[in-house]
Design a protein around this nucleic acid. Structure first.
Lengths: 194, 194
DNA sequence: GTCTATATTTGGATAGAC
DNA sequence: GTCTATCCAAATATAGAC
């Protein structure tokens, strides 16, 4: 696994990020040492510092990258019926959560490990994502196709519920992703009073 | 804050547990040092080892204690209508989560920091708790008062959703606990098809 | 029961050779 | 771009005095 001098310079950067993501998600930011990451990548510790200023920056970049990808990939059409938009959001959120479970988990767990400045920036991106869902719920209420006792709370409740798939879903389990989406849609549709 | 020799021997044990719980929940198990815990309690590091074999045992005891309390406090009457039982569970889970948010958060987050043996034991207790909810859903289906596409998945989805309150609830926020319970009850009732 | 002092390990980060 | 070697700080845990 370990490499020697001078090989694969151009791919080491991404490898560092991938290893860090996986290890941070699995064991927690503070539980993972730079030495572990280096060993996982197959380089020596010193090498890591050619790709990140320090450990904190590595975490911050991973979280920011994930949230920015999420926001960039999500597309919504306010002209569609709110229930259709909600179903799209649900599918998007579940599929993303299952495609990048480690990034999702990390983003929800390790905000606290960030320095205040970094934390504020990531929290703002997360808020932006939550607001995308809340806007859908608002339009559902305006249309009269949804009935919610408290829109903001419903937003948080739905996101918690959907993100929860990462806690129990197994690739080799009894349900495939489409089936999971369908089941969650039943639950969510009921919850929003449709 | 710091104490000197020989004072308050009989209360140091609980204080250690309280400090450890708060600090572990806030910063993560690996991010917290025994020195920090000692400083928070107001003793020197060595003293902690009169109350725990090591740091790992401290975490394991906190998690086990929380899960055992949860299971001991929860009481269910299978003779009641399933919807009433579900509402009881919901109130119990939300109130407990808001009364001991740190223990709840820790139990869901730091399983991974436990040695395999300890992890298995705590996971079994958690499973027992989940099964309590699943049994209620099963009886609702049998009664015909609930309609669920997948009972096990609904169980996990509801627990994720309810536990999510700890992510956003603030004591001084706009909603008191009873209001939160009422709002979640609306969402859950809809989700289970009642 | 608690303190002080310390052994021992491990961590993040840097310097300089190749 | 990567390695080797190393500095320095901080961590867990223990020993022995009071």
């Amino acid at each position: 696994m370990a490499r020697t001098h001078g090989s694969k310079a151009e791919i080491t950067g991404p490898l560092v990020r991938e290893s860090a993501l996986r290890l941070f998600a699995r064991h927690g930011y503070d539980a993972v040492s730079m030495r572990q990451i280096a060993a996982d990548v197959g380089v020596q510790v010193g090498t890591l510092y050619a790709y990140t200023a320090d450990k904190q920056a590595l975490l911050a970049d991973l979280l920011r990258g994930h949230m920015e990808e999420l926001l960039a990939e999500w597309s919504d059409d306010p002209a569609l019926p709110a229930l259709d938009r909600l179903k799209s959001f649900l599918r998007f959120h579940i599929q993303t959560s299952l495609k990048r479970p480690e990034a999702v988990f990390l983003s929800y767990m390790e905000l606290r490990s960030l320095a205040p400045e970094n934390r504020r920036a990531i929290a703002a991106l997360r808020r932006e994502y939550e607001d995308a869902l809340e806007a859908i719920l608002a339009s559902g209420e305006a249309e009269g196709t949804m009935k919610l006792p408290d829109r903001r709370l419903a937003t948080m409740a739905l996101i918690s519920m959907l993100t929860g798939v990462t806690n129990w879903y197994r690739e080799d389990g009894r349900l495939d992703q489409e089936r999971v989406v369908a089941i969650y849609w039943d639950l969510v549709r009921g919850a929003v009073g449709a």
